[in-house]
Nucleic acid binder design. Structure first.
Lengths: 187, 187, 187, 187
DNA sequence: GATGAATGAGACTTCATTCAT
DNA sequence: AATGAATGAAGTCTCATTCAT
């Protein structure tokens, strides 16, 4: 009905709508219909941009990975002179975990897809690889998977638990796991 | 028509079928129809046992929590005389992670539900509480959430990653996180 | 909305509606929606009776084969005392051809399916087999396929052509093809 | 973008692609999109050449009629000196029937259209008329519709049946139907 | 002359749920 | 206590066709 015949950024706008819907209603809620309605776009426009529903979901999560990694990298890079780099990790956990539920929900949904679908697994692997490169600015390569895992687990649990984070306890755990200088590997 | 007119264990058998289907096809795949077909049970029998689909899912995950916790507790309890109890944690991570994909898939799906639905969140909290009680047999209460988180994160990542666990590195991380005696709390 | 909750003969009624629609709009026109609307039945009822659209089509054509063969057999059997049995064939061609366009349309659609789909081919083979049994009441088995073929071709062409049948010419051809007594096989 | 900016024979190439698709998937399968993909042509090109889908189908079947009639005429003309012309008919039936499934499928689909649509009926009538002209080189005009019909029916049935043609039986039938000299009309 | 973007209609199908028995 | 019949809502996807460029 409306006169708008072409909208150059529509694809990206749709992807962000998809992520919003997944955050609110889960992957199951991100139907063609729901997205089209939320973005005020004709239903036919959905299948034009994403021939398959899975194409849509995959594109959305790819978009998420790009967006999120940029933020992650920024946090890791923002280390003031003379700061213990382990503070960056604490910051990441507490900020990310305490902050946006949206990210957590999206991650949880992505993992649920990944454990059963190779394509999404590959997407996460790539994302994790990029995260580790960011971590390796400060820490020894052997440690980065462990740091990653602890952060993931804590953020996940913090979203489940009702108690807020105890920052001091998180800090203590991070410091102990990494050790005084990031290159120690023996207990 | 069939010979089996009443089947006392049907409810539990259905719950296990539900979990099998979730493991294979995700929560979305555990429809009344799919479960009925997989368990060779009339469709009407499903709504008889579980008036609502969500009742069915919730009952299935409750059943999972019970089953899984029993196993978890058993592993933590099986500490040979004189063994460093941190070995129990290492064992848990490596066995669980390397082993059954089924458990991981089910956990991932449960988390995806939990981050958006209070009822499932409560279910996990209860489960996590029981896990911590098991851990507190060996470790200080302040440490158990961290141990739990590291384990969760590592198992999750191991399922995503293609590389197998490096047991030594896992052991080193666990030992460092917990410290020489399980009651240390300062870095 | 209406109170009618069960209708025992619904399945057959639907099959006849399907055939009516195919006759009017071709196989392509026999959609779930169209049939449901024509039979005044909820859409969900269609997939309840015929899980797949092809199930619906196949069932409809099976029903057609049964119905049609009964009529064919009746015509072949209705040979008055002392009548040349070849008159039965002439009658068949002229009646069938001149009569109901419905049957012809249905046959044409069925053939179009059969040339590409084994299942429909099998259905026709069975139907043809039964027709030949009916023909063998009067004629030698070697002749029946030829009689069948001539009849089929003539009926088909008569529906395409605008000119009406020339009964005498048809009779002459049938008599010549079969010969004075139905057991002759040499030219 | 591509090097081929104008392609003179595209229209004909598209028509042949259409026929290929109909042969494989039926008329229903010959969609704009499927044809465009199979011919590696942009979708917009389809509606440019054939404003309506039915234009496309009609053009394709017209093309088929031309092609096929040329072949038919060639077979009928190829009568060696002194050969009984009825052998041409036998040859036609056996070659055509035993040979290309493609032609049969296309004919069947065309008939299915023709029984419901006048335009396609006219197309077949014209084609049949040209066939009869070819047959009249050898046979009396009153016989040609019968010959045509027998051939059509036999070829059709041979494609449905699993048994191969029995050439001798076909020959006997053809000879009997036509009679010793092609101008006999009385039984 | 030719084509990419876009869209509205409708197709098949799945499904949770209700209800009479 | 248990189940077969039935249905309404919604989901994914395909497609002919239009139009601006």
């Amino acid at each position: 009905m409306s006169t708008r015949r072409t909208e150059p950024g529509r694809r990206v706008r749709l992807l962000e709508t998809v992520l919003d819907l997944i955050a609110r209603d889960g992957v199951a809620g991100a139907t063609y219909r729901a997205v089209a309605a939320a973005a005020d776009v004709p239903l036919g426009s959905m299948t034009y941009h994403f021939p398959t529903r899975d194409d849509m979901l995959y594109a959305a999560f790819s978009h998420l990975a790009d967006t999120q990694h940029a933020r992650f990298d920024q946090i890791m890079a923002a280390s003031p002179d003379g700061e213990d780099p382990r503070e960056r990790v604490v910051d990441l956990i507490v900020t990310h975990g305490g902050g946006y539920g949206r990210d957590m929900v999206l991650s949880a949904e992505l993992y649920a897809l990944a454990v059963r679908d190779e394509r999404y697994r590959a997407l996460i692997q790539d994302w994790m690889g990029r995260s580790r490169v960011s971590l390796e600015r400060h820490f020894a390569p052997e440690l980065t998977p462990m740091i990653d895992a602890l952060a993931e687990g804590l953020v996940l649990h913090s979203h489940i638990s009702t108690e807020p984070f105890d920052v001091d306890r998180v800090r203590a755990a991070v410091y102990r796991l990494i050790g005084p200088s990031g290159d120690a590997t023996t207990p």
